[in-house]
Design a protein around this nucleic acid. Structure first.
Lengths: 341, 341
DNA sequence: TTGTACGCGTTATCAT
DNA sequence: ATGATAACGCGTACAA
């Protein structure tokens, strides 16, 4: 009942193969027949069967997306819709479709990836969750299957194509910004050290302090889950220190929102009593009280470049630049001020 | 070079069709050969080619997801990651994969849907954006292609399978909650009237007031884009009314955050000077200042039920219940209090 | 219970 | 420039 290439061929009085060529925009086909065929396709409302095409051509025009375990709280982060937009845009430009996988456990995820890779459902994969000892990465590398990682790989940095920010520099600059505004008691609030972002940013933080000859204090460094309660306690402790920080760098806007609340509860005013610079610059940053000075890491572009590179890998089968760095930019709002003497 | 069903057959000393049967768990196959074949598959690391399977069986085990135009600000709403989780879970349980489409314009979206439907890439579709005069819906209905809508259709409510909240009742209850707490000057802040949710909620709001014999005031009803600036102005106007409201119902947590800020700027305290009930109960609601009393609409379940129903439609080809209502629940936090006399 | 043979809708390789 | 024809890898009706 579905109309195939043969029906079109019959109507246009040509061979099926000719129709196929017209679809593929094969150059050596006469204008005349091309028109004739196109008209027939139009008339019949023909649409190619993608499964048949994929089977014959040994390639789908599809990229696979691997999301983090859906259990993760990170999932709630506006980060994801935004990268997705970027990826989608890059894919769309090259007429690629998107296949998406999630899973509650790491095993589920690996299984899903295996199915879609071996099942030949996709030509390449984008990973949104760079974890320590990532099985998916090992698997993909082992099969030499095209993939790009958003974020920084925990190892084999030289071999894995990835798109990332220069988190070291971004955090260094953010810290320097505070130093330039007269702060010297600056604390760091970041997520789990298992995430490479956290490590990079912490290093950038430390470097900035060292450059400015400001001594590092362990009590000024806090690691908590990006979201939720854990952080609250930590902030409370931090603020009850004898020598309380006058400024905070926070690794994520969402987290900063939590910090903001805690501070409010403690009766500490931002930016009067304490300054805050946070990261990501999602919509939230401009809606908080006060609006957050935040480092824009260009989430959309992270996704966009990822899909561009992946498609390039797939099509040219020549590796693109292994490492793609997306620019960042400090967006000043109202959460910073000079420290009180 | 890829290993096929034939390789497995050869190794197991059976016919390809036998292998196929084993994969399909065909009952009439001897335990013995089943084991033999499975072992061979294991040994060779066999994975079925999904394209070939789809082509032969005329069915993919895949559901399509249609996201709203990526240009929309709504996209930033944590709503989406969460429905996606729900959908994914439902799909996973039945071993379905997910194909996702976005687009910047309505036309792009329609094209993408057409390609994936006619291209036989999916067995059914879930729509995440019920718009007025939705072309995608018309298209899908026209082809009698299985689909379910998350939200309420703008028309043909009886014919379109959809999963939704009882937004009328939810808002009615939220309003009654405020009335019970002694409020009678209650304002409504909602999104565009083109969204059926808004309409439903507005009606629920009005009904609650009418039931309580509280006169409706036009100045107390505001429609603005769910997010961003538009709302700010509106709130300012609202609060400068001679008879200022003592309570607000807001259609979305994100929006409520903006309202909260505006109120703060105006020096109006929540909940002392004004109470707020908002909707959706995303993570944000518990992180704002003060934490928001919000109606939990069970976003995850919205997605979960949607995929369950869709798969049922696909497999039984008998229509499931046309209308599936997900329960809601008011979650009390700290944004409400008795009005000051 | 198992094997044979054909079809699913395209693309690609040869011819012409 | 176009037409036959053989894959692509799997499901399935029919036969055995």
């Amino acid at each position: 009942m579905t109309i195939t290439i043969k029906d079109v061929a019959k109507l246009a009085n040509v061979a099926p193969s000719t129709v196929s060529r017209v679809i593929a925009n094969n150059p050596r086909i006469s204008k005349a027949t091309a028109q004739k065929v196109k008209k027939a396709m139009e008339q019949l409302g023909y649409h190619p069967n993608l499964n048949a095409r994929n089977l014959a051509s040994q390639s789908t025009q599809t990229i696979g997306l691997v999301m983090p375990s859906s259990g993760d709280v990170v999932f709630q982060n506006p980060f994801f819709p935004t990268v997705l937009q970027g990826i989608s845009e890059g894919a769309h430009e090259k007429q690629y479709a998107m296949h998406i996988t999630t899973g509650k456990t790491d095993k589920e995820i690996l299984d899903a990836v295996t199915r879609m890779v071996q099942g030949k459902s996709v030509d390449g994969v984008i990973l949104l969750n760079s974890k320590v000892e990532d099985q998916v990465i090992s698997y993909l590398k082992g099969r030499e299957f095209p993939f790009v990682l958003i974020g920084k790989p925990y190892k084999d940095v030289e071999e894995i194509t990835h798109v990332d920010n220069d988190n070291f520099r971004a955090m260094k600059e953010a810290t320097e910004y505070l130093i330039q505004h007269g702060h010297s008691q600056i604390a760091f609030i970041g997520g789990s050290l298992e995430l490479t972002v956290t490590v990079e940013r912490l290093l950038g933080f430390e470097r900035a302090l060292r450059n400015a000859k400001i001594p590092l204090k362990n009590e000024y460094i806090i690691h908590e889950e990006f979201l939720r309660e854990g952080g609250q306690e930590a902030v409370r402790e931090l603020m009850s220190l004898e020598e309380r920080p006058t400024a905070l760098v926070v690794a994520d806007d969402f987290m900063a929102l939590g910090v903001l609340n805690m501070l409010d509860e403690l009766g500490i005013k931002v930016p009067e009593d304490i300054s805050i610079v946070s990261f990501n610059n999602v919509l939230l940053a401009e809606m908080s009280k006060p609006p957050l000075t935040s480092v824009d890491i260009n989430i959309f572009d992270l996704g966009y470049q990822a899909s561009k590179s992946l498609i390039q890998m797939i099509e040219n089968s020549k590796e693109p630049t292994k490492r793609i760095i997306i620019a960042h930019k400090l967006v000043e709002r109202l959460s910073c001020a000079e420290p009180i003497k």
